[in-house]
């Protein structure tokens, strides 16, 4: 495994399986009265968040703390970034403070890569979402959640039919999931209005359709994406109501899904827009599981990246 996690492309097939099986074992050993493990004692993990986040930041913080690492939370609001400090100066400050890992969330695509390649910092860089590019730990926790719901497959998703519905254009979750789920053998279909599909989507290893109702019965997994109202600076959809009618998951569509099919959502949800409240709270929904699995998956990633001696140090 590489020393960084910037994109799903950094992971080989066996890296992915090792992360998923580590997460599964961590679930068993943190099930007892004490959830905490001493593994990363004395290591420092910095959460460097330039964008708002509840779930991902808390999830990384919990994961690092369960492994006994020290956690420093840094959000752009209320820091010197709002005084105009550059990413470089911020990075060098973190370097001087002895960070072992930097978990970065940034509004610009490629920010994590920039930080990792810059030489400003020697810490392990973990991408927690960069612009509309990637969000690899979200895809890993989604794959872990799917594997748990289909235990007979033992991590092999060959032939599993997954629909990703909604704002593909702005979604780093969709990009990472397409890369990861196809790597694990799943068959991914993107369902979205043409305005919310990225340029070049025809070269992705997926099927694309504009019509949610034509094949809903076929899917084992339906992953709803958030309509990112903060990125809707152009006229991507005619109205929220029309979007909801054509691409929202409601009771009617829920009923038509396969009996053992599951509903996923990376959160935060716009209840009543892309997903109805009753769909989000139904027995098919694994949305709450996704949050718990997020902590386990991120613990696995932190352990595998920081737990041993880094391979690059070995080479020295």
């Amino acid at each position: 495994m590489k020393n960084q996690l910037l994109s799903i492309n950094d992971l080989s097939h066996s890296d992915v399986l090792s992360i998923l099986s580590t997460a599964a074992e961590l679930e068993k050993i943190t099930d007892g009265p004490t959830k905490k493990l001493p593994t990363l004692r004395g290591r420092t993990v910095v959460n460097l968040f330039f964008e708002d986040s509840t779930r991902t930041r808390i999830s990384f913080e919990t994961a690092a703390k369960r492994l006994s690492a020290d956690v420093i939370n840094f959000s752009a609001k209320g820091s010197s970034v709002s005084k105009g400090e550059s990413l470089k100066d911020t990075a060098q400050t973190l370097q001087a403070m002895g960070a072992d890992a930097v978990v970065i969330r940034h509004g610009s695509s490629g920010a994590a890569q920039r930080l990792a390649d810059s030489g400003w910092i020697s810490a392990t860089v973990i991408n927690a979402g960069d612009g509309t590019h990637e969000h690899p730990t979200q895809a890993l926790l989604d794959a872990f959640t799917i594997s748990k719901r289909f235990p007979d497959r033992k991590g092999d998703l060959t032939g599993l039919k997954v629909a990703i519905v909604g704002d593909i254009l702005h979604s780093r979750v969709a990009r990472s999931n397409v890369l990861l789920l196809t790597k694990l053998g799943a068959h991914v279909t993107l369902i979205a209005p043409p305005t919310l599909l990225p340029v070049g989507v025809e070269s992705w290893p997926v099927d694309v359709t504009y019509n949610m109702d034509e094949s809903l019965e076929l899917f084992d997994v339906v992953m709803m994406l958030r309509i990112q109202l903060e990125r809707m600076t152009n006229f991507f959809i005619p109205s929220e109501r029309e979007y909801s009618r054509r691409y929202g998951l409601n009771e009617d569509r829920l009923r038509r899904m396969k009996t053992d099919a599951i509903v996923m959502h990376p959160g935060p949800m716009n209840r009543g827009l892309e997903i109805s409240a009753s769909s989000a709270d139904s027995g098919r929904s694994v949305i709450v599981d996704q949050v718990g699995n997020g902590v386990l998956t991120r613990m696995a990633v932190l352990y595998l990246l920081l737990g041993g001696v880094a391979l690059t140090e070995d080479a020295k």
């Binding site: 099986s21 074992e25 961590l26 493990l37 492994l67 352990y303 737990g307 041993g308 001696v309 391979l311």
Partner: peptide, 20 residues
Amino acid sequence: DITMHRDDLRMRPPRPLLPT
């Protein structure tokens, strides 16, 4: 499985966890 409690973790590449 005792992997997470080893004191030599930093001296070797990370190892996979074994079943508990």
